[in-house]
Amino acid sequence: MLDHNRTQAALKGLVFIFVLILPLGLAPPSVAAETQEMAGSFIRSLADQAIKSLTQKDTPRDVKIKRFRTLFNDSFAVRSIGRFVLGRSWRKASKEEQTEYLKLFEDLMVVSYVDRFSRYAGDVLVITRTRAENPRNTTVFTKVKTSSTGKPAKVLWRVGSRGKIMKIVDVIVEGVSMSQTLRSEFSSIVRQKGGKVSGLIEELRKKTKSLKASGQ
């Protein structure tokens, strides 16, 4: 009787292993492969979209900015990046400061990246491989052949995913991460302003204003 119980327990254990543990080991690779594929085609379609909407020479800059803003908000995790870039200061900022900061951050990104992005988009982008970093993050490795220099640039796109929704969380050009660089820069400004986020907001306001006015 006792033996029988034991066997049953062992069987239950086995079933438990098969039902719970095995899928954990088996399912992720296929899910990851699917996510990787999705991330790749996400970047591909983004590049195609950018070529269509940003590379015509006769489009005025303010129209380009408008289009890029839509594209940027649709395909980048703007708020998450903004928050990451502010680092520890995010928590020190008041609700109003956070809102204003995020608005200015989006502005800065749009006006300072529109030219760079249109330039990259006009060039040939080739996806070399994709790599799953963790269940939610995929890196899409691309080579971008710029027209100005002979050697193609290595551009990595960090894509975060949640189900079917994909957003770019970072762009790494030749080993230099956009988020990382902004983070060091912003923290340096906050430090210079005596640890105040309001000081950074002031600088951001000045910068975006001058960038909009300069409009190449």
Partner: peptide, 18 residues
């Protein structure tokens, strides 16, 4: 590139709206 490169993740507070 390291897989542990610190990067913003999506899915935190501000994520819902986007």
């Amino acid at each position: 590139p390291s897989a542990n490169w610190p990067a913003p993740g999506i899915g935190q507070g501000p994520y819902r709206e986007t």
